[in-house]
C-alpha cells in the first residue's frame, strides 16, 4: 500500500458573487515510503493548493474539496479537525517558501522546535530543548546551543529554512511536503538546503513531496515527477525518463524554454507562446490547446484522458511529442 494515495482530489474556490474556480481538478498521484515525488508547474497550476488540501490547511470557507487523500489507508479529508491536527506535525509535516513568515517572530527558535516535541511526543520542556538542540545540529545549524535562545530575525534566511526543516522533522514524520522550499533563497544557499533535504530523505526514510516551479531542482532530487497544468496532471514520469523524453508538449516546451548553464550560448530559446491566463476550461478540451504547437482537432473535443505510457508513466495528450525526440 502506498504511503500517500491521492485520488481524484478536486478543490473548487467559490467566492461570493464570482464564478467558481477549479484550482485542482481530479488530481491523483501516489507516494511510496522513502520516495521523493515532485509536483511541478507554474503559478496557478494548482500545485500549492494540492499540498494545502492534503494537509487540511485550506481556509474553511469559500472552497469545496472533493476526492480522497489516503494516508496509510485513512482518508485525511474525512478526519475530524482535531484528529487531523494531531497527525499534522507528527506524521505529515510541511515546509513553506518563506521561512521568515513561517516562524513566529517573538518566540526563540529553540522553543519553537521544542513545542512540537512537547505537543506530539509528550516531552517536558527540558528534554524537548535538549532534543531541539540535536535537531538543529542535524540540519547543519552551527553552534546549536546558542541558536536555541535566538529569535528568527537574528539568523539568516538559510538558517531559518534549516530551522523550519528541523521543526518539520522533529517528530520523524513519514511524509514531508516541501512547498517551494528554496525559492526565496540564494543559489548557494539553495544548494545547501537541497543537499540537506536529500541527505535527510536518505537517512530517515521520510517520503518527500517536492513542490516547485524549478525543473532544475526536480532533476536532482525527485524519483517521480508530476507535471501540473491548469489544475490537472498532464504528465507523470520517472525522473530520467521525463527529462530525456518529455512527451507532453507543455513539459517539452518548458524544458526547452529555460536557459541552461550547460547549453551552448547564443542559441534561441524555444518559448512557449501566450501565458498561463490563456487557458481554456478543461470541459472544452485541453487547457493547454491555445498555447500548444501540437494541437489537433481532438484537443477541442473534451478533456484528453490521462493514459499510461509504454515507459511506465502517464500522459494526458492527444498528439504527444514523439518518443524519439530528445529534449534539446
Amino acid at each position: 500500500m502506498s504511503l500517500l494515495d491521492v485520488r481524484d482530489l478536486s478543490v473548487v474556490f467559490q467566492r461570493r458573487g464570482e464564478r467558481p474556480f477549479t484550482a485542482v481538478d481530479k488530481v491523483s498521484f501516489t507516494v511510496e515510503p522513502g520516495q521523493t515525488v515532485g509536483l511541478v508547474g507554474e503559478s496557478g497550476c494548482g500545485k500549492s493548493v494540492t499540498s494545502l488540501a492534503i494537509m487540511g490547511l485550506l481556509p474553511k470557507r469559500g472552497n469545496k474539496v472533493g476526492g480522497e487523500v489516503l494516508f496509510d489507508g485513512t482518508d485525511l479529508l474525512k478526519l475530524r479537525p482535531n484528529d487531523m491536527r494531531d497527525r499534522r506535525g507528527r506524521e505529515i509535516s510541511m515546509i513553506f517558501q518563506d521561512p521568515l513568515s513561517s516562524l513566529n517572530p517573538v518566540i526563540p527558535i529553540g522553543v519553537q522546535v521544542a513545542e512540537v516535541l512537547e505537543r506530539h511526543q509528550g516531552r517536558d520542556r527540558k528534554q524537548a530543548l535538549r532534543e531541539a538542540r540535536d535537531l538543529l545540529d542535524a540540519v547543519g545549524i552551527p553552534d546549536p546551543q546558542r541558536r536555541l535562545s535566538e529569535y528568527p530575525h537574528q539568523i539568516s534566511g538559510g538558517m531559518r529554512q534549516r530551522a523550519l526543516i528541523a521543526i518539520a522533522l522533529a517528530c520523524k514524520p513519514r511524509l514531508l511536503i516541501a512547498d517551494e522550499p528554496t525559492t526565496a533563497l540564494d543559489v548557494t544557499i539553495q544548494a545547501q538546503i537541497l543537499t540537506l533535504l536529500k541527505q535527510l530523505v536518505d537517512d530517515t526514510g521520510t517520503a518527500l513531496v517536492m513542490i516547485t516551479h524549478d525543473l532544475g531542482v526536480v532533476a536532482g532530487l525527485c524519483d517521480t515527477v508530476n507535471v501540473l497544468y491548469g489544475g490537472k496532471v498532464v504528465e507523470r514520469a520517472r525522473r530520467h525518463e521525463l527529462f530525456a523524453h518529455a512527451r507532453h508538449p507543455y513539459t517539452h516546451g518548458l524544458l526547452n524554454s529555460v536557459p541552461r548553464l550547460d547549453s551552448p550560448r547564443g542559441e534561441r530559446l524555444h518559448a512557449i507562446r501566450g501565458s498561463v491566463s490563456d487557458n481554456i476550461p478543461w470541459t472544452e478540451g485541453c487547457a493547454f490547446a491555445p498555447r500548444c504547437d501540437n494541437v489537433v482537432d481532438a484537443c477541442l473535443e473534451g478533456p484528453p484522458p490521462l493514459e499510461p505510457t509504454a515507459t511506465g508513466g502517464d500522459l494526458r495528450c492527444n498528439n504527444p511529442v514523439s518518443e524519439e525526440v530528445t529534449v534539446r
Binding site: C292, D293, N294, V295, V296, D297, V321, E324, V325
Partner: peptide, 14 residues
C-alpha cells in the same frame, strides 16, 4: 524564423 528542433516534432494541424 525557423525554430531549430521543431521539424522533428509532430506539429498538430487544426
Amino acid at each position: 524564423k525557423p525554430r531549430p528542433g521543431m521539424s522533428e516534432r509532430s506539429i498538430g494541424v487544426l
